[in-house]
Computed example of a mutant assay.
Amino acid sequence: MSASTTARTVLASGDHFIAPRLFADALREAAPGLALDIRTQTTPWPVEPFGPVGNVQEASGTEEQLLEALGDAEVAMVQMAPFTGRVIERAPHLKLIAVARGGPVNVDVAAATRAGIPVTFTPGRNAAAAAEFAIGLMLAALRRIPSSDAELKKGVWRGDYYAIENAGIELDGTTVGLVGYGAIGSIVARVLNAFGSRVLVHDPYADPARAAADGVELTGLEELLRRSSVVSLHARVTPETRHLLHADNLALLPEGAVLVNSARGELMDYAPLPELLRSGRLGALALDVYDTEPPPADWPLHDAPNVITTPHLAGATRQTAERAAAITAGEAARHLRGEPLRHVANPEVLGAGRRP
C-alpha cells in the first residue's frame, strides 16, 4: 500500500457461526487490489440466543458494542449485530449495511432508508442446508428414527413397530404439500420428486410454468392441507403469512398427517398442536423453529406424543457460513468499486437518495 493510498474502512461483524475472519477473507478475495482497513467484532450468538434489541429482531450484542466497533466505518458486513435506528443515526460515515442473512431482520431498514443507506441481504445462502434438513425431519418423523434410537438406548427393542398399525410410511408415492416455493421449497420439491412423492405446492407467487416444469401441482392452501399426508413449511413471515396455519385449517389434515416446520415459528399457531397430536389428527410433528425460542420449560409440546424438536439448526452448515460470507463480501466489494448492488432490501435509496 502506498503512502498516498487511503484505505477504505470496513467492519466485519460476525459471531460464532459466521466468524469475522470469513467476512474478511471473502472481502479480500472479492476486492483484490483495494486498500482495506478491516475491523472486526464478534457477537455472542449462537452461544447466547438472539432476541430483540432496541427496535430490531433476532439480533445479538448491544447497540453500544456495535457503535464502538463501527467507528468511522464506511461499510458494515454483518450477521446478527443490531442496526437499530439509534445506531444508524449515530453512524454518519456508514454507506452500506451488507447483511449475511436471508432477510435483514436485525436492521431497521426504514431508518437506513431515511439515512440513504442501502441494506443488502443474501438470498439462498442456506437453501441447500435448509432443504436437506427438512427432508431429514420428514424421514425422521415418518420412520420414528429419534424415538426408536432413544428407546433402544434405554434397552427397549420396539419390534412392535413392524405391526401394520405402527409401521412407518414411505415418501415414495406419498403426497407431500409444500407451503412456499422459493429457493428452499423448490429444492425440497426436487428431492421429493426423486423419492417418488406427489408434490403439491401452495405459493401465490409461484410461476405456474416453472411449477409444471418442476413436476409439482399448484393448489390453494385448504386443498393442499386436505390432500397431503406430509406438510412442510417454507414460506417467509409477512403480515399475510403470520399464523397461516391455525386450528381451523389444521383440522383439514388427513388423520395421522405429519407436519414439519423448519422455516419460521410465526407461520403457524402452536396452541392447537398438542390436542391435534393427542387426538391423532397429527400423527407426528417435526419442528426446528418455535413461537418462542428457546421454548420454555413448561412448553406444552414437550409432553405431547410424537414430537421431534431441534434447536433451529436447519441452516447450520459450514457451507452456509462460507456462502453467506462470500455473497456479503461480493456486495461490499461492488459498493467499494462503485458497481451496482445485487440484493438490496431498500432499492429506493439507489440514486438520489443514497448517502454520498
Rank of each mutant, 00 (worst) to 15 (best):
G85I: 14
R86T: 12
R86M: 01
R86H: 11
V87E: 10
V87Y: 11
V87C: 11
I88P: 05
I88W: 02
I88Q: 00
I88K: 01
I88T: 03
I88A: 02
E89D: 15
R90H: 12
R90V: 01
A91M: 07
A91F: 10
P92D: 08
P92T: 09
P92Y: 05
H93Q: 10
H93V: 00
H93W: 12
H93I: 00
H93N: 07
H93A: 13
L94P: 04
L94Y: 06
K95M: 03
K95R: 15
K95T: 10
K95L: 05
K95Y: 02
L96V: 06
L96Q: 02
L96Y: 03
L96N: 01
L96T: 03
L96F: 03
I97M: 07
I97P: 04
I97C: 09
I97Q: 12
I97G: 09
A98Q: 11
A98K: 07
A98F: 12
A98W: 03
V99L: 08
V99A: 11
V99N: 15
V99Y: 00
A100F: 04
A100Q: 08
A100E: 07
A100I: 04
A100S: 12
R101E: 13
R101L: 14
R101D: 07
R101N: 10
G102P: 08
G102Y: 09
G103Y: 09
G103W: 04
G103I: 09
P104T: 13
P104C: 14
P104G: 09
P104I: 12
V105S: 13
V105K: 06
V105E: 12
V105W: 07
V105Q: 09
N106Y: 12
N106E: 08
N106C: 13
N106D: 13
N106L: 09
V107F: 04
V107G: 05
V107W: 01
V107C: 06
D108N: 15
V109R: 00
V109P: 00
V109A: 02
V109L: 02
V109Q: 00
V109E: 02
V109I: 10
A110F: 04
A110C: 09
A110V: 14
A110L: 12
A110H: 08
A110I: 13
A111T: 07
A111W: 09
A111F: 11
A111N: 04
A112S: 05
A112L: 02
A112D: 01
T113E: 15
T113F: 13
T113P: 13
T113W: 10
R114H: 13
R114C: 06
A115Y: 06
A115M: 08
A115V: 14
A115I: 08
G116K: 02
G116C: 08
G116P: 07
